[in-house]
Simulated assay, not measured.
Amino acid sequence: MSDLKSKGGATIEQGDTVSTPYRGGKHEGKVEQIVTDEDQARSLDAKGARHAPAVVYTDQNNKKVAHKPNTVTDLDKEW
Rank of each mutant, 00 (worst) to 15 (best):
V55A: 01
I34Y: 12
N70I: 00
Q14G: 02
S2N: 13
G24P: 01
N70V: 12
N62M: 09
H27W: 15
V31T: 06
T73E: 05
K64M: 10
Q40L: 03
K64W: 14
N62H: 09
K68P: 04
H27M: 03
Y57W: 11
Q14K: 15
D76W: 01
D45Y: 08
S6N: 02
G29S: 11
E38G: 08
A52T: 00
E78Y: 12
K68R: 08
H51Y: 05
K77N: 09
R50S: 15
K64E: 06
A54C: 10
S6T: 06
E32T: 07
K5V: 07
T58M: 03
T17L: 10
T11C: 03
N62S: 13
K30T: 07
S43D: 14
D39S: 14
E28W: 08
K47D: 14
L4E: 02
A49L: 02
G15K: 05
G9K: 13
G9W: 14
D74P: 00
E78K: 11
A46H: 01
V56H: 07
T20I: 02
E78F: 15
T71E: 06
G29Y: 08
T71M: 04
N62T: 04
V35R: 01
D16S: 08
D76R: 04
T17F: 00
K64H: 13
K7R: 12
E32G: 14
V31E: 00
T36S: 15
D39T: 05
K68G: 02
D37R: 09
K68H: 13
D45V: 01
V35D: 12
K5W: 07
A41P: 01
T11L: 14
Y57V: 01
G25L: 07
M1N: 11
V55L: 08
W79D: 13
Y57N: 00
D45C: 03
T20C: 00
D16Y: 02
H27K: 07
K5I: 08
K64T: 05
D74K: 08
R42P: 01
K47V: 06
T73C: 07
E13V: 12
T20R: 10
S43E: 15
K7C: 10
G29T: 00
K63A: 10
V72F: 10
G24K: 12
H67Q: 13
G24E: 13
Q60W: 08
L75A: 11
P21N: 14
Y57I: 02
A41Q: 03
Y22K: 03
K7S: 09
Y57S: 01
D16H: 14
Q40E: 15
A66Q: 06
E38D: 13
D16G: 02
V31N: 00
V72A: 06
